[in-house]
Design a protein around this nucleic acid. Sequence first.
DNA 1: CGCGACGTTGATTTGCCTCAACGATTGTGG
DNA 2: CCACAATCGTTGAGGCAAATCAACGTCGCG
Lengths: 190, 190
Amino acid sequence: METLRAHIEQQVSFTAADWDILQPYLKRRTYLKRQYLLQAGDVCQYESFIVRGCMRAFQVDARGHEAVLQFGIENWWIADLNSYLTGEPARFHVEVLEDSEVIQIDRTDLETIYTRIPVLESYFRRLFQKGFAAAQLRLIDMITHSALDRYQQFLRQYPTLSQRIPQRHIAAYLDITPEHLSKIRQQLRS
Amino acid sequence: METLRAHIEQQVSFTAADWDILQPYLKRRTYLKRQYLLQAGDVCQYESFIVRGCMRAFQVDARGHEAVLQFGIENWWIADLNSYLTGEPARFHVEVLEDSEVIQIDRTDLETIYTRIPVLESYFRRLFQKGFAAAQLRLIDMITHSALDRYQQFLRQYPTLSQRIPQRHIAAYLDITPEHLSKIRQQLRS
DNA sequence: CGCGACGTTGATTTGCCTCAACGATTGTGG
DNA sequence: CCACAATCGTTGAGGCAAATCAACGTCGCG
């Protein structure tokens, strides 16, 4: 639990009293590799803070192609945000890529938590703000850069992730076929 | 000013006292078609609420190609969020497409406003949350759908915008060349 | 009226995908 | 602990959606 506390304190000034209020709402949970935190079609009940491990949120389209929305590692939150907020069925799956430990907040508790601990709303406001800005930049990068550029930028931006995650998932994150990514890597080797 | 007030009240419970505090921080301003609200390279000083009018936020890459991040019309906020939050130089231009009227909040006032009017932080938290979720969906749609699909979805989602905005900008929003969009429209006509 | 911006149309090119076949690695049951 | 299957990354051939390049008609505006 201390990792989450540290992460919150890093963003906002969070008192011991706040923490005492929050703690009962938190559910600690572990998952094994290949388990699913969330299945598309279900409502996303939890936002999960990753204490340890690695996972991916992805969509499967009609032709069976997977598109990765985001990866999650230590100190990241992961969820199908749209489903979590609206209660609509999720369109993303969340699959666990390494044995993982998470801390979850139930969607039905969130508004209550905001009123009882206003500073937590500030914490999430910052989080969403950053996430929004980052999503916008990723969108524009996707549009303006070639597959080669996107891969090189990924390596620069997330050097550790490229070690931990199978290439086909990185390909699906960058919107490249695994075959083409393989050719890009070959080309970079020479 | 009343449009902004109405928009806030629609999201959170906002008192007359809150409004009195907020008002001195707001700057009303008008722009003419073809003016720039923001130039890439400058720091984005304001987040602008559009009372009337229309504009676009876009990036120009090394080869001179434009990519449209978002359009803004009545009741939308527009800014280079990353620059506004961090103080880094903006990478987007914001160009006014129709004579417009906006209400602006200075980036240096925002934190103060949050502490004086906590409910406004709630308002922006919701805004960013929705924006984040929407950006994620747009990203995935961009990846998984063809140019034709994206254009048809745009027509369905923003029927009024497609009337107000020149086609080359819609093309740049959808990541299609103007030539190709024209061919798509021809194809839809038959 | 004449210029420039915009949308259209056609010919050609290209970045990436699809499909298919093949080693290498992983993991699993006998 | 080995044999076999499954999964993964690689490589090559061929194809396609969309980009590029270029030329043309049209409209709005100075």
